[in-house]
Design a protein around this nucleic acid. Structure first.
Lengths: 339, 339
DNA sequence: ATTGAAAGGTTAAACGATTTAGAACGCTTA
DNA sequence: TAAGCGTTCTAAATCGTTTAACCTTTCAAT
């Protein structure tokens, strides 16, 4: 009861293996009659088609795309931005009969899969520098999202410009402003930045956001002090709560707080409301991302809306197209009621 | 600048291909000296190890496990129960150097991957009957979770018993009781069951839950009318809201409402509180699953706690072990404050 | 001295396909 | 009749490994 192979089938039908292969893969290489005849015979004797493992070796193509996630899976599935991104990718891959290999979190090597996947979609800058190097050294296509890899196409929004715009919309002359940032410095817990060295600035979207905020602040003549910038190691509620408390208890309290994600902004809003602070009267807040929850708060959040699903879809499309040109997606400033 | 192969390396080092292969795969087949010598030479000339695609064909093993999700990915990543499950699976796979192929949603065929994956973990009964058939007809290992497949090991909790117990804890003699169920009948929207035919009862966990509820109700001498049982097509807030409204507006209103998931129960609780109904004074509510949010409500939810992460981990372990025995995981009845 | 087993390698046949070069065939045309 | 051409099919090389079977040496035990 062994599994049938192309050879077995060829022998049974009295034709060559090439013909069977062509019947499945290249209809133009044989007459339509013969083809249907063969396919039906196959169905009859229970041959479901060429063995995929053999195909992968021979063709050098597997229809498997690896999705490399910078953060651990726990985080990815919890964060609405990340998980809608995965949905977008998954949708396009499915439409194109490709499969999704999930390569999540602190993985330190892609050598295990590089031989057989057709390409990589990387979401967020890998925590592990060596992964970036490995990705760059191999020749399979790579599409990066929310970060950049030398010579590879990237999908992103213009984070600097968006941040500048939302900040500009929130700021008034003479404001005291604070920033709740994300992954700006290397620290395992929430803390102020002071003069800690910033992480590799070029490839990180949060650095671009910081740039945007700073440009707006400078334009408004507002000083940016690093002890008014907080850093969260991850975009998760627990880190946000701590930052929110600290910043709200500082005196004098800022008039505006610019948050690098909606998750942070929502937690901050919650905190401020509990403390009886009037929003936006006494304090203005901006978020970033435009997650669904941000549209449901009362007052509802001022934020930068970007479509994560679309990001995922475009990333997948770009990878499949083999194109090598980066892409800047549109975003929308939502003024909301918190500024 | 072609990629190095085992053969190239063998030629360069002046040994046979088998020896190189053994150096990588079977240390006991050659002297330790030769082995380290070979491995170092490989590193030097830039050979990172045997090509995986070829290995897959030759060994018939890929280290890739397919996770087949019954529901669409959109739903999976939204639902905390499902996504913690995925985390559990992912964690164990990673620990064992296996890779995760995500096969989500309404896929209708596994023929594309069956030749190269090492096995399947199926979460929830596939909506598409043919998938079950296909899974059963192929010979790779399968582990099912939250449903059963003839002859395959399953991971589950005793849903009937758990439901019986939580219902028993909630019910008082003379109660009017309603049930908010999940996927009991074939309907695209929320509605009462009446006398619609139930879906294939055996393999579905929600049917087992219904059994448990009914046993408890019967023991308490409470009649079960099918127009007091609602059915939701999916475990999502939007369906729950509608059911919640309907059941709360029915008169006379039930004294107890048994919900087949926490998502449903939370929505119902929310709805009831908004209507000014006293919980548990005027209405008792039970949930199922024990998601985090259920522990944070005020009053906090009576529910059946099961660990989804553990479920995922056990499923992966079971698959990797090759064992064929099903497993019943522990659960815990949390009385909470809603009954 | 002979034997046998163990150690350390090598050879060559799979694994199950794809694909190129070319053979065979039937037909038209010079 | 031979050459030319398009179609259909075949033979053989290839993809990059793994592994069963086999071949030498070496060495202790008889």
């Amino acid at each position: 009861m062994k599994k049938l192979t192309l050879k077995d089938v060829a022998k049974q039908l009295g034709v060559s293996t090439a013909t069977i292969s062509n019947a499945f893969n290249r209809p133009d290489q044989l007459s339509a009659n013969k083809r249907t005849e063969i396919l039906e015979a196959c169905k009859e004797i229970g041959y479901t088609g060429p063995n995929r493992a053999a195909q992968i070796l021979r063709k050098g193509q597997s229809n498997i795309v690896a999705l490399v996630l910078a953060d651990s899976l726990d985080y990815m599935v919890t964060d609405p931005v990340a998980n809608t991104f995965i949905q977008g990718v998954s949708r396009v891959l499915r439409e194109n009969q490709k499969h999704l290999l999930l390569y999540a979190g602190d993985s330190d090597s892609i050598t295990d899969v590089v031989d057989f996947v057709d390409g990589f979609i990387c979401y967020g800058a890998p925590r592990n520098g060596s992964l970036s190097t490995q990705l760059n050294q191999q020749s399979k296509p790579v599409v990066t999202v929310d970060f950049n890899l030398e010579g590879r196409p990237a999908i992103n929004i213009d984070n600097e410009k968006a941040s500048y715009e939302i900040a500009k919309a929130a700021l008034r002359p003479g404001d005291r402003a604070a920033i709740l940032g994300l992954r700006l410095i290397d620290s395992p817990s929430t803390c102020r930045i002071y003069d800690s060295p910033l992480l590799d600035a070029e490839s990180s979207i949060t650095h671009r956001r910081l740039d945007g905020y700073c440009r707006a602040l400078k334009e408004m003549g507002i000083e940016v002090a690093t002890d008014w910038i907080w850093n969260l190691p991850e975009n998760a509620g627990m880190y946000a709560v701590q930052a929110a408390r600290e910043v709200l208890q500082s005196s004098p309290r800022p008039d505006v707080i610019l948050c690098m994600s909606d998750i942070i902004a929502l937690e901050l809003l919650q905190c401020a409301l509990t403390m009886g602070i009037d929003i936006p009267g006494e304090l203005r807040i901006t978020g970033f991302d435009g997650i669904e929850e941000a549209a449901r708060t009362r007052p509802y959040m001022a934020t930068v809306c970007q479509s994560s699903v679309e990001k995922g879809m475009e990333a997948a499309k770009l990878l499949l197209s083999g194109d090598n040109t980066s892409m800047s997606l549109p975003y929308e400033i939502k003024v909301g009621e918190t500024i």
